[in-house]
Design a protein around this nucleic acid. Structure first.
Lengths: 219, 219
DNA sequence: CTCCTAAGTGAGTGATTACTCACTTATATA
DNA sequence: TATATAAGTGAGTAATCACTCACTTAGGAG
């Protein structure tokens, strides 16, 4: 597989849940739940089988190893988490419509990813946890980030800087600050303090406003 | 143990490395390294013993269980990570010297924690990873945050708001934004992209400036 | 009905696991 | 010097692990 095909292959992986046996779907469902709760290494295949209501051998009929099961969960998960940045219309088009501001773009991104994470909290937990320990997963993500997300972000930021709409710092710093703000909010909202009372619309709005204007009073 | 003593007991835990046997120190050292690299659940006690150069039984002479070994690493780690917010002079005094701004306070915090993390990257990895799976650890941290960190932060933010030096949003939003910015930077710097080229002084300065003034151009 | 293949099963296996225990060695105190 | 206590050891153990395999069941093609 050459490098051109690599990302396409990854993307296709996002749709591979089409031809799943009912029992295979149950296995994935159970594995996601338990991996998220206890972590991959602390989860036994017998436990997954029990929760999925299948024999332990059935897991290995579909996945050669326990690790292959993890990968078949996380890799499509990474795709789905980052796919808005793949879709050409998402960043580039928004960026081309000059009427729209960087602030508008950020609002779209944060709302879009907020809703995705809301529906996929356990998946996000697994991705964050297991990327730290499995080199292949980290590299899948890094590859996507470097080839797809960063260039588009960079294109937009560079243009907005040129137009004098955002501050003239290095793009890498602006992108890092932007992403940690958005990701930090989403992680706080769903992983760290999911049970606090959140006015989501208000908080998204304030987060973007602080990102754009900082925490000094309006001048 | 009543609740008053609880935090004091946690703080004392930070100094318990005084009366350590040489072999016990080796065990802790080895465990920190391997836990950080492979995760607690994927690490065997035989592996720790081997790396520490001791017999496996020696580990259980000092720690009743493998989990007790983890706790005796992470709990003091949490203390050391958060202790600047305990120390009365750190936040409150800075806040009382009105000549100093919120920006100055943030610079002190970010520099101080930057240097601590720099010297304790594996420890930070373990804390982040294992808090997700061990309820006691999560609660230790939450207890410290709610009782010690948040109130002092809140006191400072409220005063600065009153003085018109920072924007009049809810303190919880300002604190969340401030913390995700600082933590996001430190995690990016040491865990996500440790091998990138960083001009640390410049980047700390820009991070605080973006935090204070946002990413719109200077007005 | 006869193949064929894929899906599903669960008892079985060798390796590894956290932890124990009877024992030795070292240190301190009386 | 005698004695007690703590530190250190490593062979041993029951439990659990990921994975295998001979087998059954189901469904579709000829």
């Amino acid at each position: 597989m050459d490098k051109q095909d690599y990302l396409q292959h990854l993307i296709n992986a996002g749709e591979e849940d089409v031809q799943l046996t009912p029992k295979q779907a149950k296995i994935l469902e159970a594995a996601i739940e338990i991996f998220a709760e206890k972590g991959y290494a602390a989860t036994s295949t017998s436990e997954i089988a029990k929760k999925a209501g299948v024999a332990e051998g059935t897991i290995f009929r579909h996945y050669k190893t326990k690790k292959e099961l993890l990968i078949s969960i996380v890799t499509p998960g990474i795709i789905k988490l980052t796919v808005p940045f793949f879709a050409d219309q998402f960043v580039s088009e928004v960026f081309k419509e000059r009427s729209e501001s960087y602030e508008q773009l950020l609002r779209k991104i944060i709302r879009n990813r907020f809703e995705f994470v809301q529906k996929n909290v356990p998946l996000l937990k697994i991705i964050i946890q297991e990327m730290a320990f499995h080199e292949e997963l980290k590299q899948s993500f890094q590859s996507i980030f470097i080839k797809k997300i960063f260039p588009k972000f960079d294109e937009a930021v560079t243009q907005f800087k040129k137009d004098g709409l955002i501050v003239d710092y290095p793009s890498s710093s602006i992108i890092r600050f932007t992403m940690t703000t958005i990701i930090g909010f989403i992680i706080t909202r769903f992983l760290i303090l999911p049970e606090a009372e959140w006015d989501d619309d208000e908080e998204i709005d304030r987060t973007i406003r602080m990102l754009m204007h900082g925490i000094q009073p309006d001048s």
